[in-house]
Computed example of a mutant assay.
Amino acid sequence: MIERADQLVLNYVSKAADAAHGVLRADQRLDFARRLRARIETERGGSQDARQVARVLARFGDPMDLVEREARRLAAPTPAEAAESATRQLPAVVDEREAPPGVRVHRRLAEEHLAQERGYGLPFAGLRRVAMARANPMATGGRDARTIVKEHPRDAAAIVILVAAALLVPFHLAPLAIFPVPVVVWALGAAPVLFSESWNLRDKLLGIGAPMLGYSAGGVLVGGLRVGVEAGWQPFIEQFFDVSGTMFMIGTGLGVVWLAYRLLALDER
């Protein structure tokens, strides 16, 4: 989406401007932010693909590094730097497509090694990044908890509703008509997930189907194991309703984790 790509650029420039506060004068900070935005737009080449824009921003590096370089330039400019244009004073961006194949391979291996050292190569590493509200865009691809919520408010709200449905199970509220309250709340969260453009069909089915699968299949399986095959229907039904709520909560937890993970893992789509 265009708004998502533009928001990534705005967030990055805002972080750079915040980092420059107290380091550069107000006029210097304004000029720095303007030139940085112009350079990003040049490298972006009009792309509205959020993944491509995130990669461009990652190549610019940590905004604090840009601010420190700008401060050094302003403090003691060299003749060569004075002769450069304003946009040339920003770090050069390397396009991986222009690099030789061997360089691209070694660069990828180095990035994977650094990711493993930082813990981002572990399974479900995206879930660790969501807690990094002020994370380095180099590590998060321009995406953190605040950015996710800003870009996907309805998706985030749907996930919260699904969590609320699971948390209501232990309260044993009176049913609405014939439907248990947690199931009604689950339906309210499942609807926006189904109509969301952020997940593909498989992700949607896994995310909202896990709670009901846990409730039905999990309840039947665990309830049957607890009473055995010779106990009869009445003990089985009692055991089913005794464990189905817990299985619903477990299924909801797994579904929510999957939806949150896929919301972060844009590069895998």
Rank of each mutant, 00 (worst) to 15 (best):
P63G: 03
T78L: 09
D95S: 12
A38C: 08
D62T: 08
V105Y: 07
V220D: 02
E230D: 11
V256R: 05
G209S: 12
R154T: 11
E3I: 06
L173E: 04
A50Q: 09
R4S: 01
L213W: 02
L30P: 02
V13A: 13
E98H: 15
A76E: 14
Y215S: 03
R118V: 13
V243N: 09
D31G: 13
V94R: 05
A210V: 10
P63L: 02
R4K: 12
R39Q: 14
V163T: 06
F179G: 00
T78F: 06
T140S: 04
T42G: 07
F60T: 04
A191S: 12
A145F: 07
G189N: 11
A210F: 04
A26L: 07
A177L: 15
A174C: 13
V23P: 00
G228C: 09
L266A: 13
G228F: 10
G22R: 07
S47D: 05
V227P: 04
E70F: 03
A110T: 09
M64R: 02
D31S: 15
H21M: 12
G45P: 01
F240R: 01
E98S: 14
L168S: 06
L213S: 01
P100E: 12
D62I: 01
G214P: 01
E81I: 13
T147M: 15
F60N: 02
V103H: 05
D31K: 08
R269N: 10
L8P: 01
G121Q: 07
D155L: 01
D6F: 15
I148E: 02
R55K: 14
F124A: 00
I148R: 01
D49C: 11
D267N: 09
V169L: 07
A131S: 05
W199I: 03
E96V: 08
V243A: 12
E96L: 13
E268R: 15
A83M: 05
V103I: 03
S14P: 02
R29E: 12
L74Q: 11
A16Q: 08
D27C: 01
R202C: 01
L57W: 13
P91V: 07
V53S: 02
V229A: 06
A19L: 03
E81G: 11
A33L: 14
R59I: 09
F248N: 05
L213M: 08
A71L: 05
R37W: 03
V9W: 14
R108T: 12
A20G: 09
A135Y: 00
I159G: 01
R104L: 07
F124L: 07
V149G: 04
R154K: 05
M132P: 00
D203F: 09
L109F: 03
A187C: 10
V185P: 00
Y120F: 13
R51N: 12
R104I: 03
G46F: 04
D267E: 10
Q52V: 12
M212A: 09
A83E: 11
Q116S: 13
V185G: 00
L259K: 03
A115I: 09
G46W: 02
L74T: 03
D95Y: 07
F195T: 12
V185K: 00
I148C: 05
L266H: 14
A26E: 10
H21D: 15
P211R: 05
L114D: 15
A80W: 06
V93T: 05
I237P: 03
P180G: 07
G245A: 04
A231K: 05
D155V: 00
R104G: 03
A131W: 00
A83P: 04
